[in-house]
Design a protein around this nucleic acid. Structure first.
Lengths: 246, 246
DNA sequence: GGCGGCTGGTCCATTCAGTGGAACGCGGTC
DNA sequence: GACCGCGTTCCACTGAATGGACCAGCCGCC
């Protein structure tokens, strides 16, 4: 029974998911009123649904509002892709960290972003990204490494719409160079003072399924020195994933 | 519109959560038919709800069925308790690992279980428990460490129902000893050949909010040697959490 | 090749789970 | 004391959700 016209979702499922996403995006606690505003769902409905989610431990009440609960933690650690990828990546990351001492990431494509599934802390402070955090595909080395090897034109076109018209050509030239060198660079495009170097991780069908990167301070990290190390790590991870499937 | 009487949940919210839990409990992929059997929800309803959850990336289709998707990974890493606890625990665990080289866990109470929120791999193979995994409170050192300092009679009574009548007294005596010594032991009660040593982590109100443990092979790990180390780690974590709140 | 069994998806007449404005209680501020 | 904002609860009403029936596809067996 939905009476007055509201802007938000109508189905119960969409409403629950919208509430969970709003709490996630809050980066800390949020209130019933704020969730209602953000989602367009009436306040009393939000109150009721949040009450149910708290009862089942999907959400939890804290001092200053509602936060993500333990049940979602239990579900999250069992997410298929991060689990498989993280497991395969552990020894590769250990070796890459020994060689570089810098901040490492393995990430997968998620819509217009790259989503980090596992990271290792290096020198950088504040940490630019860690597991569960999204970074834009078109500016990061991680994203460019995957885009360069993406053959699905519609997926490419979807990401390209975020690029200015006059920046299209240079971007396509950059992707072509990445395909030649097997390595992508982000020179302070995403995070000020941070340079990133990444290579793609491919499936047996030569489809990019992830990317692995090293990031460090631009004043101090030699991107050229990192390139062969990252390439090698990506290749190692590609092979580990292939034998995981078999 | 629910027509024929079914055993399963009736509300959309309960059904969605039942489906997610069934997929979590599958420890890999599961099928629409299996979810329907496990939840008591009609197959066509499961098919429809799973379709929606896949569209929103809460679930994902794999070769052999349905698995947990990336969205739940993104939500899970933002779960409030594991995040706070994990962050505070990192340096403490690093120090404890340096001193012991054994398998470490920090866990919180969740119903009748202890839920690991962060772990460090030591010598043990297979790994007895890791982040996101539940272990029974009444047999593990982690659980006993928390129960010994739990003053809420109803919470205690809820857990005690899992204990045989004639084992009640000895268990209560064990809890009393833990309160004297500030350390709990699990001598192969939970995992064969594995001994665990744990101490509680308290809130400023002296309420046990977590526990920290060391586990190793009974043939090789000296529980007595571990006791002061674990006590010290729990105290350090207790203090770190207290200053996190302030 | 035909058959049977199993799976997952789609349809739509039916119905009851879900609704949200209104009212309420509480706490904080002036 | 009045006002404001928050979160909760209620219940007459209704439209979102339903699930049995049917379908297509796949697999294994004779």
């Amino acid at each position: 029974m939905r009476s007055a016209p509201h802007d938000g979702p109508v189905s119960v499922l969409d409403r629950i998911l919208a509430i969970l996403d709003t709490v996630r995006e809050a980066h800390g606690a949020t209130t019933i009123t704020r969730i209602a505003l953000a989602t367009g769902i009436p306040k009393s409905t939000v109150s009721r649904l949040v009450g149910d989610l708290v009862r089942q431990r999907y959400l939890m009440r804290a001092e200053d509002g509602v936060v993500i609960g333990l049940r979602l933690f239990e579900l999250g650690v069992r997410a298929s892709t991060p689990r498989r990828l993280g497991l395969a990546a552990l020894p590769v990351l250990a070796e890459l960290f020994n060689a570089t001492g810098e901040h490492l990431n393995v990430a997968v494509q998620e819509g217009p972003d790259m989503l980090s599934v596992i990271s290792v802390r290096g020198r950088l402070r504040p940490v630019p990204s860690r597991a569960g955090v999204r970074v834009p595909s078109i500016t990061t080395a991680l994203g460019k490494a995957v885009l360069a090897f993406t053959e699905d034109e519609s997926a490419l076109a979807g990401v390209m719409t975020g690029i200015d018209r006059y920046r299209r050509r240079p971007f396509e030239r950059e992707l072509a160079a990445i395909r030649m060198e097997w390595v992508a660079i982000d020179r302070c495009e995403t995070f000020p003072g941070v340079v990133g170097v990444a290579s793609p991780v491919l499936s047996p069908e030569r489809v990019p399924v992830a990317a692995i990167s090293v990031a460090g301070p631009v004043s101090d990290m030699d991107a050229n020195r990192m390139m062969p190390l990252v390439r090698h790590a990506a290749l190692a991870l590609t092979h580990r994933l292939a034998s995981q499937v078999a």
